[in-house]
Simulated assay, not measured.
Amino acid sequence: MPSLSPASVVTALRAAGCVFAEDEARLILSTARTPDELAAMVDRRVAGLPLEHVVGWAEFSGLRITVEPGVFVPRRRTEFLVEQALAHAPDASVVVDLCCGTGAVGAALAAALAAALGRVELHAADIDPAAVRCARRNVASYGGQVHEGDLFAALPDALRGRVDILAANVPYVPTGEVGLLPAEARDHEPLVALDGGTDGLAILREVATGAPAWLAPGGCLLVETSGRQLPAAVEAFTRAGLGTRSAYSEELYANVVIGVGVVGAVGM
């Protein structure tokens, strides 16, 4: 079949409602290897598949992260969580990426820490088998291990009391609001990666409660949340016995709660 021209790709994407049609067209055109593949990629994007699922990758913290079909797409705002983790624990040697999805957060942390300090011990975990398979591809070059299971139950017991950075990009959309998400998310990303329970904070509270048992002295837990949920999220961290603060990025419109393990504290 004849190859689509760049202009026709832009036109098709714009007609489908893609706000950044020109930018998306450049990515698709640079990724497609054949005219048939180009046409198929344009068709998938026009049908509503997330761009990252169409091209098979997403840029995150300067890395190209593999994104497989059906796996949660890493958001650029979550780069702020990575920045906050590195600012708090620039010499971290043990990192856990909980609710890891593609493993983007763990890969970004490992890349930065390894560049500065040498090898870092990286573990990631997710309850979704598709996410686990995808994350293994993204953390392999850092020697990362990916575990399948529900939150802390997935982690090796030997990590207890040793984790310097515990990054948990938990789902935080209230159940009743999942249907209001853009179709790209609600139709093509796993519900388990989006639905945070009645008020969106069920998983966050569970992670905050369990974290002290896994953190090294002075280790930190970082979780992304919305501005509306921030006060309740901070309260959950405080109740768990964590020294708690929050940070906000106006540029990325991102809120991160940071909890620091208290020396000598006994986790649950």
Rank of each mutant, 00 (worst) to 15 (best):
S3M: 12
P6Q: 00
A7I: 15
S8I: 11
V9D: 04
A21C: 13
D23H: 12
E24T: 12
A32I: 14
R44T: 12
L49Q: 13
H53I: 14
A58W: 09
A58P: 14
E59A: 09
E59V: 06
S61T: 05
G70F: 14
P74K: 06
R76C: 05
E79S: 10
L81P: 06
P90K: 12
A92L: 15
A92S: 07
V95I: 11
V96E: 07
V96C: 14
L98H: 10
C99R: 01
C100G: 04
A124M: 15
A124G: 13
A124S: 15
A125Q: 01
V132Y: 00
N138V: 15
G143E: 07
V146E: 02
D150I: 12
L151M: 12
L151E: 02
A153G: 15
P156N: 01
V163C: 04
A167M: 10
V173D: 00
L180R: 01
H188Q: 04
A193P: 08
D195L: 13
G197S: 01
D199K: 03
G200A: 08
L201N: 02
I203S: 04
L215D: 03
P217A: 01
G219K: 02
T225F: 05
A232K: 11
R239E: 12
G243M: 07
E250R: 07
Y253A: 09
Y253V: 10
Y253F: 10
G261R: 02
A265I: 08
V266Y: 05
